[in-house]
Design a protein around this nucleic acid. Structure first.
Lengths: 337, 337
DNA sequence: ATCTAAAATGATACCGGTACCATTTTACTG
DNA sequence: CAGTAAAATGGTACCGGTATCATTTTAGAT
């Protein structure tokens, strides 16, 4: 922990060493195009000599631009979000923006706290997951004066802009797909509904498809569990223990579907022979396991890229005319259903 | 994108509204304990009234403390690191620190860039993964004047402090374990070695165990592939296609081991009957699949907590006497080996 | 060589907090 | 109730960049 007693070099030190004024040094480092090449050279040399490291806090204070884009995700364990995050990160890097990431754990209170911190740090833009925010959060965001993007779920009237897919349509499509295959008792293993518009919409889509097919909604066929592998297994075990077993199961995530598949394996049921199983997300594993998993493909990367491009144009002052970007999903038919 | 034309409230505005001086308002908001409760109340009310949001850039500039802890990870897709990150985040939250996360993609150049940015943002501490840095990065870090923690791998002479496990010992133990079981042709499926001290140490541990057992190191039994499920399968396929098949496989991550297991399944080989398989990391899935996976358990959460506690004591000025924290691993014996 | 527009450079102030030190107010003591 | 220490509060300056506008230098035209 070798703390150096000598103060770090400032732009003024660099300027002095280069024999120019601080503001010229600043412009030289910024590549503003206003400085003569020879002068830039002098400044850069001086900076290198002095191990100059600019202080972005000062820059932020002065320009009111932090070059930070804040992103709030539900959690850090879901690889789905990781892919989108990666894609946002990659797309923003070249423009000199850095990500400030926070995890809300699906708690509106935590989310509000995060928004406050991000505003305090003067994030240049804020990217949220979903559109279920506390009233206070909504107020904060509306007043924020920075671009806001809500991603993953579509939303009729976003705070500002939204980029995502219709979870409702996707879930309805998959349910219809199974019904079309002749299944009549289609169960639904969904994630926790609270504060999660994605899981809610998926359940609604499932119900809508049943209704359209003239089937009754049977609560016994629906399980609401955390998005964890083992809960997929447990839910499946419960469904299979019932007097009237399902002939198909639609899980609202591949993780849950995998758990369900495993349980079928354990019980010696053939998939899709005895029971069909479908997932949601199209995770890497989905195509690799046996039987490969029928699922909903979500353009995670495209979502990230679109989010980044929306943020960038907004930050460049280009008016984003479109406020809702439907990135579309695909129903990926494989072996399991 | 409703930008408000009116300037955001500053601490001076709040102070004026509360009828106190800016510095008193500042102290009231900070909870410094120097302000009378009645005054605090006035200030807090005024702040709420004005929708005051403090500007942390200004605070950082003034106090030279950003309340940011920077963390550099190899990638964002590996859940192993996510768990540690989560644990660091949780442990630091209460002390008011926020994480600034960057991903190096195992590239020393990217890592250096990240370090520069983090120093520019005046991160209060920097947490790195591993200890393979460019010379320039080492210089930067040594001069940084902030606590540095290198995590995950142990290191004889860390830049500052390091918290992790001995990948060498872990790999050697697992290899010995398999040899003790009577296997004689133990293959090794490892991750890419370049710029990754964890994979390198694991390979060395594997070799050391062979050597100790008087066995020759056979390059044909070693595969160096990316840490991806499908590469585990591919590597296993290659190993099984050879004239002399292995009787055991040690994969340097559970992801690879899963891929390998799958390939065995495909080929109708029984595990561990025909061939034993072991992994590394003890991921969630490891205990759930069939056969459950014998693997190396890494205290991911404990690593995160220790990292956080080291960072916190350093930031509080408490001298951390110990510089190397060996968090230990466990060999988790399950069905697959 | 002279003039003018464009290109470079610079002086000063400001961004919004807080450190530092001085001053005032409060609370306690005898 | 004075006297004193402790508790609150405030004035001023500063952190390290850059915006703004003024000034100087350079390059091109005549």
């Amino acid at each position: 922990m070798q703390h150096r007693s000598d103060r770090r070099a400032t732009i003024r030190d660099v300027a002095k060493a280069a024999g120019v004024s601080p503001i010229t040094a600043s412009r030289a480092m910024q590549g503003s195009g206003l400085v003569r090449p020879k002068t830039i050279e002098k400044v850069v040399q001086a900076a290198k000599q002095l191990d100059y490291i600019p202080n972005l806090a000062a820059g932020t204070l002065s320009t009111n631009a932090s070059h930070l884009v804040a992103v709030i995700l539900p959690n850090m364990s879901n690889s789905i979000f990781a892919d989108t995050l990666q894609s946002i990160s990659d797309s923003l890097r070249d423009s000199g923006y850095q990500l400030l990431v926070g995890y809300s754990d699906n708690s509106p209170e935590l989310e509000e706290l995060l928004v406050r911190t991000f505003l305090s740090r003067r994030a240049d833009a804020i990217v949220m997951t979903g559109h279920m925010h506390s009233d206070e959060t909504n107020t904060l965001l509306r007043r924020a004066g920075v671009p806001i993007v809500e991603m993953w779920s579509l939303n009729d009237k976003p705070l500002d802009t939204c980029v995502g897919i219709s979870n409702f349509d996707a879930a309805r499509s998959m349910t219809e797909f199974m019904l079309d295959k002749g299944h009549r008792r289609v169960a639904f293993i969904g994630g926790l509904l609270k504060n999660n518009d994605r899981t809610q919409s998926r359940l609604e889509g499932y119900r809508a498809a049943l209704e359209a097919a003239g089937l009754d909604y049977d609560p016994d066929l629906v399980r609401e569990v955390p998005f964890e592998f083992e809960h997929g297994s447990l839910a499946m075990r419960e469904l299979l223990a019932a007097r009237q077993k399902p002939d198909a199961v639609f899980a609202a995530s591949d993780i849950l579907a995998l758990g369900a598949l495993l349980e079928c394996n354990q019980q010696g049921l053939s998939v899709p022979g005895d029971i069909a199983v479908a997932g949601f997300d199209d995770e890497r594993l989905a195509s690799l396991i046996k039987p490969s998993l029928t699922t909903i493909g979500v353009p995670r990367q495209a979502i990230g890229e679109k989010v980044a491009s929306v943020v960038l144009s907004a930050l460049r002052g280009a008016p984003v005319d479109q406020r809702i970007f439907d990135m579309g999903f695909t129903l990926v038919e494989r072996e399991s259903a």
